[in-house]
């Protein structure tokens, strides 16, 4: 037990000293992002910045605008207003320069699933400008680190949801981007693989990579991320270092407080009177 204790303590309250503000340059700068679908405003003036070497957790209830924000930030969806720059390159004015620096894992999008895992990774690598040998050797390395070795020769169509998340993460990493944007990367991924992938991301961030990820799993975000932003109803309620946002509480408690989720239970009295 004594051996386990320091580890638990570390995972509950990460002892990462917040980096001194002037030291790290801004990698991702999102400002004034707005997107409407018909009459509904999905994202309403969202702004935030992410600095080099940080893992930024993006949390919010269902339908809060996380996926829309991340899609716009990676150039996959056109905003109605606002700008996104990656290391100074505007994603919408100079997409080729910006996209070279971004690795994306979008949520709920198809892959070319008749390709085998190896073919898909090679495809992504070459689309991002890798040569044949580099794309192949990185495919092997990534498959080993993410536990995909046995699956590489099978068509992606036969993969489980968790495996698809893993191969998508590998596809996002293969060109060693400066910025990784991951939408729900660990949904349906088993704990062992989550641990493997977290280690990969941790190492990537320590080496100067920048990660933005969204998740519903507050414990995971609290363990994994050093910065966090809370989005509710298309607005960014708060963003900053993990300690600032938590404000002494656990992230989950703080999140529920911000999202105002506790009142909803009141209307369901009938659920306490059983029909037997």
């Amino acid at each position: 037990m004594t051996a386990a204790k320091p580890r638990r303590k570390k995972s509950a309250t990460p002892k990462r000293p917040t980096p001194p503000p002037p030291a790290q340059p801004v990698v991702l700068e999102v400002s004034g992002l707005t997107k409407r679908f018909g009459g509904v405003v999905a994202v309403d003036g969202v702004s935030f910045t992410v600095r080099r070497g940080t893992i930024f957790g993006f949390v919010g209830p269902n339908g809060a605008g996380k996926t829309t924000t991340l899609s716009i930030a990676t150039g996959l969806m056109r905003p109605d207003a606002g700008t996104v720059t990656v290391r100074g390159a505007d994603v919408w004015a100079d997409p080729i320069a910006a996209k070279r620096m971004i690795g994306v894992l979008p949520d709920r999008m198809r892959l070319f699933d008749l390709l085998t895992g190896a073919q898909l990774l090679y495809y992504c690598g070459v689309l991002h400008g890798l040569d044949r040998e580099t794309a192949r050797s990185r495919t092997t390395d990534l498959a080993r680190s993410l536990g995909l070795d046995d699956a590489l020769d099978r068509p992606v169509r036969d993969y489980s949801i968790g495996m698809i998340k893993k191969i998508s993460l590998a596809a996002a990493l293969i060109h060693s981007p400066a910025l990784l944007v991951l939408d729900e990367p660990f949904e349906a991924v088993d704990p062992v693989s989550t641990q493997l992938a977290s280690d990969v991301l941790r190492r990537y961030a320590d080496a100067g990579g920048t990660v933005v990820l969204s998740s519903h799993n507050m414990d995971f975000v609290e363990r994994m991320c050093d910065h966090v932003g809370v989005i509710v109803g298309g607005r960014m309620l708060t963003a900053g270092s993990m300690d600032e946002v938590r404000d002494g509480l656990r992230l989950e408690e703080r999140f529920v407080e911000l999202a105002g989720g506790r009142q909803a239970v009141e209307g369901l009295e009938w659920l306490t009177t059983f029909s037997d």
């Binding site: 070279r100 999008m109 070319f112 991002h128």
Partner: peptide, 13 residues
């Protein structure tokens, strides 16, 4: 391609 075309959209192509 359906939504798999995101692989092309996300690449510097």
């Amino acid at each position: 391609d359906h939504t798999a075309i995101w692989l092309h959209v996300a690449a510097p192509l």
